[in-house]
Design a protein around this nucleic acid. Structure first.
Length: 269
DNA sequence: AATGGGACCTGCGCGC
DNA sequence: TGCGCGCAGGTCCCAT
């Protein structure tokens, strides 16, 4: 799915298109993605409301509505928000005033839509760690020292830091020249700072280029994000490292693929 | 606290 | 062409 840069891109795309628009009709093609309230209530409550503000927290997208409630959307692995609608894996369609249709597509049905009175009270949100751009390097260093885990799975842990997913964890560690299996608390000061800086740089740059279209992710217009061409390791198993030409390696960590360059990111313990 | 496994789902690409 | 397997951007839940 969309990680922070993709959700941020969708947020700004949506702001240009649906801000202030009224939701005329909600068509539910697969009720599974509606987590609360019951689908019929969800539909009825939303119809007639307009969209006041669009926010993001971690990988969660939040639409503030004219009655003060919030529509939260988590795209998980394959969720998309696209207009015009009509996609084949459309699960919910929002018909807006003016006739525009915003589709929530989700091939794998992991995505979650909720209509709630306070998004900040969601358990999922309560557990989220800091936003990367709100975090200071001093705090980040402290956080690293407290953790005994391998650094790569830690970057994926949304209660540690929110918004980083499998692609950007790999890209960030490559640029910081840190082996993904290093223990968080084993990083020396210089590495801690470099990691902090690369988190900021990679995420900002990915936002600037509209995110990474690897599998399903597309922008609201249906067009691809443009950051994948800057990927240096993700999905490049066996291919030569752009820096040193050694083959990129893939290992499993916590059941997920990790890509890295064994030469640029050596295991120095 | 941390780690490992499986679950939730659908679809794609690969080797045979 | 068909089949079985591994894999996929995320998160939750359970067991150890």
């Amino acid at each position: 799915m969309p990680e922070l840069p993709e959700v941020e891109t969708i947020k700004t795309d949506l702001q240009k298109i649906i801000l202030g628009k009224k939701i005329i009709q909600v068509n539910i093609y697969n009720p599974k993605v509606i987590r609360e309230p019951l689908p019929a209530i969800f539909k009825k409550s939303l119809e007639g409301l307009s969209i006041k503000r669009i926010l993001r927290r971690g990988k969660l997208l939040i639409l503030e509505l004219s009655n003060g409630k919030f529509l939260t959307m988590h795209l998980k692995m394959t969720g998309q928000l696209v207009t015009p609608g009509g996609g084949k894996s459309s699960r919910v369609a929002f018909v807006l005033d003016g006739g525009r249709i915003l589709d929530f597509n989700d091939q794998r049905l992991f995505g979650e839509l909720r209509l709630v009175s306070d998004w900040k009270k969601l358990e999922f949100v309560q557990r989220l760690g800091p936003e990367p751009f709100d975090l200071t390097s001093v705090d980040f260093k402290d956080m690293l020292l407290k953790r005994k885990t391998e650094i790569k799975p830690l970057l994926l842990d949304q209660s540690f830091i929110s918004g980083i997913g499998n692609i950007y964890a790999a890209e960030i560690l490559f640029r910081a020249k840190i082996n993904p299996q290093r223990l968080a608390r084993s990083l020396v000061k210089k590495e801690q700072l470099l990691l902090y800086q690369e988190i900021q740089k990679v995420l900002k740059s990915a936002i600037k280029y509209g995110g990474s279209s690897v599998d399903d992710y597309v922008r609201v217009s249906g067009k691809n994000g443009d950051y994948a061409r800057f990927h240096r390791v993700y999905g490049r198993e066996g291919k030569p490292c752009f820096v040193c030409a050694s083959p990129i390696k893939r290992i499993a960590q916590g059941g997920r693929g990790t890509y890295f360059c064994p030469r640029c990111q050596p295991r120095t313990f």
